[in-house]
Design a protein around this nucleic acid. Structure first.
Lengths: 150, 150
DNA sequence: TATTGTTATACTCTATAACTATA
DNA sequence: TATAGTTATAGAGTATAACAATA
């Protein structure tokens, strides 16, 4: 008598959900972000925190709200994010010489070092993910996604 | 003297963020979902609610937890979702004849009617979105996304 | 008047522990 | 003992109104 397989419950039908671009996008995004989140967890960084550190480094002297806007983060929600990065001594708020309302943000040396580590970790992640697509596949995917991102 | 353009603040540099698959995926997913959410709002349906109605219709007689599992919804979180659909008389919980612990879920006539309307609305949405990609583009995109969704 | 940063607040999504009733 | 449904709860993420300081 052949060994019986462990009983798997029958998979439900998803109908034509997998043909919906939105559904397929969401599933892929969750899977990729799952890998990003796990990768950055070694540095106690969440994806949004990484992107904030990156934008601050890329745009020295920019104002708090400019960073938030560029990342689609609401200004009120950005306050606590910056508070935490500042508390961890990764970023700091400075004075604007021309406008005493606004704060110019910058990275500390520790923030620059952590960003560098994060970039290396994410480069490895990116290689892992890209290997499922091939070079042509990745560039075509980025092209198609750009057409959707308005 | 030429008319001066309205002053736009200089766009910040995103570095190589747009080359990250995860970043591009998230931006595209948010844009597409924005259209889905607006489209379904006419029926007072959120995307997750649509997918629940669809799966119930596609899998008659299936149990509450099977629907939740197939959609990646945690069992505890699925309870309130079903409560609301039941309160709106779109779905109902029935008795399982063989296991008194489990509930078999089904759509009411009203739920079937609303699902049909939602499908039509989403078909129009899908046409709108797909037109940005072309037929070949859409099928290639679904193929690439499937490779990422593990 | 308008804008920057801020506080307070609320709503959705998601995640986990633990209970109950059944199996 | 294990499972289905449930309750309670907590944490992210996201959204809006309103205030003080400054422009």
């Amino acid at each position: 008598m052949p060994k019986t397989e462990p009983h798997l419950p029958p998979a439900l039908s998803l109908g034509d959900l997998p043909q919906h671009i939105g559904y397929a996008l969401r599933r892929a995004q969750l899977a990729v972000f799952d890998d990003v989140i796990k990768s950055l967890a070694a540095l106690d960084l969440r994806p949004a925190q990484f992107s904030v550190l990156l934008l601050i480094a890329e745009n020295p002297g920019s104002k708090q709200t400019q960073i938030a806007d560029a990342l689609g983060i609401q200004r009120p929600n950005f306050v606590a994010m910056l508070d935490e990065l500042e508390h961890r001594k990764l970023a700091k708020r400075g004075q604007s010489s021309t406008d005493r309302r606004s704060r110019s943000v910058s990275l500390t040396v520790g923030g620059q070092a952590l960003l560098l580590k994060a970039k290396k970790i994410l480069a490895a992640h990116e290689s892992r993910i890209s290997s499922r697509l091939g070079d042509e596949g990745k560039s075509r995917l980025l092209e198609l996604l750009a057409a959707l991102a308005i």
